[in-house]
Design a protein around this nucleic acid. Structure first.
Length: 856
RNA sequence: GCCCGAGUGGCGGAACGGUAGACGCAGGGGACUCAAAAUCCUCCGCCGCAAGGCGUGUCGGUUCGAAUCCGACCUCGGGCACCA
């Protein structure tokens, strides 16, 4: 025997990785004779270091990929890089250098950290979205979308930093101020390119029902995001308003409260507000202040509700003598509905807060059936399905539900010519223009004579220029001396390139399709997408539940319209799994001013009476686990873990303990325990390999039964995304294996099967076990074990006995005893006899094979 | 503010509406050792000597039976359209 005397992952892991590579096991091959399986984890942003979240994400995908391969599928499991985006430009500004170098260096670093983890990835398909080969095809897609009318120009608001003269991302706006300049941001309108996703709102909503292998919560979030609503759109005629503003169009989902209206409120971005702004300094001041909130909906909605009375009045549609004041309010969004509402303070908390602040009337339109109370500081907002008594209805029964009243109100208004019933969606068109360098150039030219002219396809890709500088603010493409100056493709006259680049969500909206033919001279290859699509299992963080996944669903439809995807692929992800984060405790001490100073986990140690700094012995505060983040220093570098324990330990620990959809806490003790367990298995295998004891038949049979239960449980665990349960079953089997009196041959047979069961999770160790147990060839090329039903059958069953729902004893009976016989046996039980004290039971519930409950 | 989740021993968690705490960590006790490491055995929800009682974020409800279903609330997390 030449095997080393103990488990040495540093030596064996590279060996097996080389063996897999030499055997070409992970190259995805289009093989129509076999079923295919496409497993995809959301591709990483190349920040430069992989983190434990990546390890968890890609380990889960690898378990699925290796399991499916063992089941005989032709598996596609690719990897790439979501490589455009802000951080590269921020790095260039802060540290100098070029976004391109920063990005490709990071990719090289991360690839080097990822490969030692032993993932069964087809690396030949790797690409980065910043490769001209990729973004050039994306530009071709853009031109296709343009031809089909799926892209258009519109005006949209952005965060404008008046000092940096730059558009800021929402992330770069902190408390309404630019993160670098510190000055209040402004909302500013710019012409932008947008995709017509809102045309597909109904389709994207309806199709959610068919995504039955997506988490319910994700479908709910998407449905709410699309936000289909039924309501009334009506015009309020104005009194003495400026020309062109004779009517204010209002959208409401509660037309039943129309007779409780107390004011009209319009958005600060409403055309009327913009008009008044030019003539009224007070309005101008208020509107300017609103624009300092930036564009983030969260910021707008959490800001204090404020408004200004325009002095204009609007007539109530049911009573021309009833005039409502017109206010501009900071919480009305121009993007939703018509950008104007009527306020009914009695039945909307936000309207009520506003009315109380500004002394506006509160007019209830309905009240509770029982114990009605006047509205104080809490609006009366029952569920629409609740029945209420109407005080100011118009034509429906006095007692009715909100739902009934809404439909009746729409009918009534339509019959009187006051507005019309409409269906609206909250979903807005997808603005993709970014005033930044490090993104995919939008392939159009602006010609003073011809207007917007697409770049000819032969001229694609429109390459980003390399000679750019980031030492001055603004878009480097805009400032570049020559790049934007081109001849118009149509008239050959002087024209200007579009200097906006695309939102990086565009890049990630079709990468899954590109993986099927990453070097094709078109966005996709019909044979390849036909074979590989759809993604059978998609895995990623729940933070992408709405935007990325919704955009991808739209993109798949648009690509289908342009002939790049088959009709069967308009829903590109058959199954979705959203995994939890990796968390860690946070360690901190305080500086002289009491501000926190964070410390890396390796800088602290547990000591008497708490945690201390290794260097100084200072006491350390421990904060409960939170998502690993560099700023809090609660990070563990996967490369360190691999160097210390090996990849299999990192993989095993990431799968154990926590269910995959929940957060998992990284602990040093847990990682060490995982490593100890793997070393124990290695030892058991080495012992079995060297032994030749005959054992005995009963022990051999007991081991076989335990093995087959394990096969069943691990298979169920993997197929049901219960990796932690599969791990628990494998721990339990290791305990059996350790204590068994079975013979060496039986033990080797069991270890060979154990190797196959562990191969998806700890593939390197599995090869070791497989080899020591005398297995032929590579374990990674093997087939998945099948549990023998005969060995799973149990002969007896132990039933707990409850008396009045409390457990009071148990009884062991033959497995398939008739219910009457079970009842008789239960009634004869001593504990039951005692509880009954001679009386007959009121009720006897027998759940076969489960439990018995005696009600006395 | 709005939408979506999650809360079970000291800790991570397990449990088709049917024995709450599988499996692991930490901890206690023991074996081996000159000693230590490693390894192995064993105990381990809380209160109680015991009988027994109490326990799944809080408060109610449905049920023979609730961690699980329903309602209200609390806390923590994710998303809110230019972070990815």
């Amino acid at each position: 025997m030449t095997t080393p005397a103990r488990y040495e992952p540093r030596m064996v892991e590279p060996k097996w990785q080389a063996a897999w590579e030499a055997a070409g096991l992970f190259a995805a091959r289009r093989d129509p004779s076999r079923p295919k399986y496409y497993v995809l984890e959301m591709f990483p942003y190349p920040s430069g270091r992989i983190h434990m979240g990546h390890v968890r994400n890609y380990t889960m995908g690898d378990v699925i990929a290796r399991h499916r391969r063992a089941l005989g599928y032709s598996v596609l499991h690719p990897m790439g890089w979501d490589a455009f985006g802000l951080p590269a430009e921020n790095a260039a500004m802060e540290r100098g250098g070029h976004p391109k170098d920063w990005t490709y260096d990071n990719i090289a670093d991360m690839r080097a950290q990822l490969k030692p983890l032993g993932f069964s990835i087809d690396w030949s398909r790797e690409f980065a979205t910043c490769d001209p080969e990729y973004y050039g095809q994306q530009q071709a897609l853009f031109l296709d979308f343009l031809e089909k009318g799926l892209v258009y120009r519109k005006s949209a608001v952005v965060n404008w930093d008046p000092v940096e003269m730059t558009v800021l991302a929402n992330e770069q706006v902190v408390d309404g101020r630019g993160w670098r300049s510190g000055v209040p941001v402004e909302r500013r309108e710019l012409p932008q390119w947008a995709f017509r996703i809102s045309d597909y709102a109904e389709e994207l909503l309806a199709a959610l029902d068919r995504l039955d292998r997506w988490p319910e919560k994700v479908r709910t979030m998407q449905a709410n995001w699309i936000g289909k609503s039924r309501g009334l759109q009506l015009g309020f005629s104005t009194v003495d308003a400026p020309d062109g503003f004779e009517r204010i169009e209002v959208y409401t989902t509660r037309p039943d409260t129309l007779r409780g209206a107390s004011f009209i409120a319009i958005s600060p971005d409403h055309p009327l507000a913009r008009h008044l702004e030019r003539h009224d300094p007070a309005v101008a001041g208020f509107v300017a202040e609103c624009r300092r909130l930036g564009t983030s909906e969260a910021a707008i909605e959490t800001a204090e509700k404020r408004g200004i009375d325009t002095g204009l009045r609007a007539r109530h549609p049911f009573d021309q003598g009833w005039e409502l004041p017109v206010w501009i309010a900071n919480f009305i969004l121009m993007e939703y509905g018509t950008g104007a509402i009527f306020g009914c303070p009695a039945h909307d908390q936000r309207d009520l807060d506003f009315a109380r602040r500004y002394g506006l009337p509160v007019i209830p339109t309905f009240e509770a059936l029982e114990a009605p109370e006047p509205v104080g500081d809490v609006a009366f907002v029952p569920a629409k399905s609740d029945r209420v008594r109407w005080l100011r209805g118009f034509g429906w029964p006095e007692v009715a539900t909100g739902d009934t009243a809404i439909e009746a109100a729409i009918d009534f208004c339509e019959s009187r010519g006051v507005g019309r019933g409409v269906t609206k969606y909250r979903l807005r068109d997808w603005g993709i223009s970014r005033q930044r360098y490090w993104g995919c150039p939008i392939p159009v030219v602006h010609c003073p004579d011809c207007g917007v002219v697409p770049v000819p396809r032969a001229a694609l890709p429109v390459l980003l220029p390399d000679d750019v500088a980031f030492d001055v603010p603004g878009n480097p493409l805009e400032r570049h001396p020559t790049w934007k100056h081109v001849a118009c493709p149509r008239c050959a006259g002087p024209a200007r390139r579009e200097t906006d680049t695309m939102d990086t969500f565009v890049d990630s909206s079709w990468y899954f399709a590109r993986f099927t033919s990453p070097r094709a001279p078109a966005p996709t290859d019909a044979d390849e997408v036909g074979y590989w699509m759809n993604v059978d299992q998609y895995i990623g963080g729940v933070e992408h539940a709405i935007l990325h996944l919704l955009y991808s669903r739209f993109f798949a439809r648009a690509m289908h319209i342009c002939g790049h995807l088959p009709a069967t692929a308009v829903e590109p992800f058959d199954a979705l799994f959203t995994q939890g984060m990796v968390t860690h405790e946070i360690y901190l001490t305080r500086d002289a001013r009491g501000l926190p100073v964070y410390h890396l986990p390796e800088e602290v140690e547990a000591a008497e009476g708490g945690v201390r700094l290794k260097a100084t012995g200072a006491a350390v505060e421990v904060i409960p686990s939170a998502k690993m983040s560099k700023s809090k220093k609660n990070v563990v570098d996967p490369a360190d873990i691999v160097a210390r324990f090996g990849a299999d330990t990192a993989r095993w620990f990431m799968l154990s303990d926590s269910p995959p959809e929940r957060d998992v806490e990284w602990t040093a003790a847990g990682a060490e325990a995982a490593h100890r367990h793997l070393a124990r298995l290695w030892r058991l295998a080495a012992e079995a390999a060297a032994a030749d004891d005959p054992g005995d038949a009963a022990e051999d049979a007991a081991l076989a039964r335990a093995l087959h239960r394990t096969i069943r449980d691990v298979t169920q665990g993997i197929e049901g995304f219960g990796f932690n349960k599969a791990v628990a079953a494998l721990y339990a089997f290791a305990n059996v294996l350790q204590r068994t009196g079975a013979g060496a041959g039986a033990r080797r047979g069991a270890i060979a099967m154990l190797a196959r069961l562990m191969a998806p999770m700890t593939p390197h160790l599995a090869e070791e076990l497989w080899e020591m147990a005398g297995g032929e060839g590579l374990c990674a090329a093997g087939t998945w074990p099948v549990a023998d039903p005969v060995l799973l059958a149990e002969e007896t069953v132990t039933l707990p006995i409850q008396i009045n729902g409390k457990r009071r004893g148990e009884i062991t009976l033959a497995r398939d005893l008739a219910p009457e016989a079970v009842e008789a046996a239960v009634l004869a039980d001593a504990a039951v006899q005692r509880a009954l004290a001679g009386a007959a039971p009121k009720k006897l519930i027998v759940v076969p094979g489960r439990i018995v409950n005696v009600v006395v």
